[in-house]
Design a protein around this nucleic acid. Sequence first.
DNA 1: CTGTAATATGACAGTGGAGTCATGTTTATT
DNA 2: AATAAACATGACTCCACTGTCATATTACAG
Lengths: 222, 222
Amino acid sequence: MKTTDKSLQNGSAVDSAQKPSGSLSPVTPRGEATRRKILDAAEEVFGQMGYYEGSVSEITRRAGVAQGTFYLYFHTKKDIFAELVTDIGKRLRADSSAAIANAPDRLSAEKEGFKAFFEFVKQHRNVYNIVQEAERVAPDAAKEYYQRFSEGYQRGLQIAIDQGEFRQLDTETVGYALMGMAHFLALRWILWPWQENEGGALEVPELVLNEIMAFLRHGLIP
Amino acid sequence: MKTTDKSLQNGSAVDSAQKPSGSLSPVTPRGEATRRKILDAAEEVFGQMGYYEGSVSEITRRAGVAQGTFYLYFHTKKDIFAELVTDIGKRLRADSSAAIANAPDRLSAEKEGFKAFFEFVKQHRNVYNIVQEAERVAPDAAKEYYQRFSEGYQRGLQIAIDQGEFRQLDTETVGYALMGMAHFLALRWILWPWQENEGGALEVPELVLNEIMAFLRHGLIP
DNA sequence: CTGTAATATGACAGTGGAGTCATGTTTATT
DNA sequence: AATAAACATGACTCCACTGTCATATTACAG
């Protein structure tokens, strides 16, 4: 055994000694690459099999590394799962921001946001399952995911109100309502294989999107 | 060994022999009571600990019966979970139906439906977690749960349209949108302990409910 | 070329849980 | 009282998975 045992196997030994926290970071390009391989494999495994039915050994198998290597870069199975949730949140928010960046008005922005979300879910079918499972498996990571998303929504809505484009409304309530709508529409038309779609394609139909926009504009009353 | 081995341990031996299907039904009040105890304990265990972290032994422990007794009434751990999901769906739909039964118009019905849903989630905090987990653990049961719910929504919406109370709209789209709204609002104000509520009570505030109703009436535009 | 830090290995210990089974107890019927 | 079906028990088998560790390999600085 070399003198490196503590610093690597136990996280930073110099830390405040509280939690084993802090990602086990590689210092070498080689290590960096291995860590990435493991993360990618984990995304696949958790996405397809779920957190509990996916195993570390399956992850390392797909990553093409040995079991032990896993623990060189992640403290526990739960840790890598939480990191994935955070990652996915970042990516999704980046996609959304980009999508609504140059929308002429807030209503268009909402539409583009919905579309970007659906596109993300479609492109990362398995991945989105991870987010859903996070609520049980890694509540803290899930918390951050939803809170950040909500904050973004609230900011956008407030601006629209200030500019007189939207009526006075409670941004938090409406923010969550919109998130819920997007979530369930994605479930129905993209994630649930048992539901038949019009064309058979796993995509949210234009009609549905237009219905939603009409809802946002006029509500349900004639 | 008695001559009952096959008929009980293997489900009905006279069945079409396909799946081990069919709940292992007791024939005696005593058995009925035991089965109920196990179901109730399972609801508690799965609700609090989740499907994977809850164990059959924990269920039987709380039910006050032996491990083996469990398998007298349920084929597998997954089976009892699926049965719970079905049960919860039935109860929730019954509550909803009752709540909207004598609403003067559809908009009031929506409001009462939301309120009933929030009340159900509040009264069965743990229980609702089971529904959420079902999507991964027992997709078929989850499918039925959501489809039935959706059908109810679509029927109600269609009537409102026919009576000219709601504008022409795609009932499936709007149905899922409404389900999503209700779901996420319940998450935010009832199920997430990390979120601070106004009064500290785990309840959806009147203000939020009114905001939602305004949304249904007018949409987001002034 | 050599020493050392970083990275990698895979067998293994330890653990916990699902489902089974031979046996035991209750209840009702005749 | 006898008998049998229904119900109940809990020890046990089998299995899979997480996290560890002693050892091996790679790569780079001097």
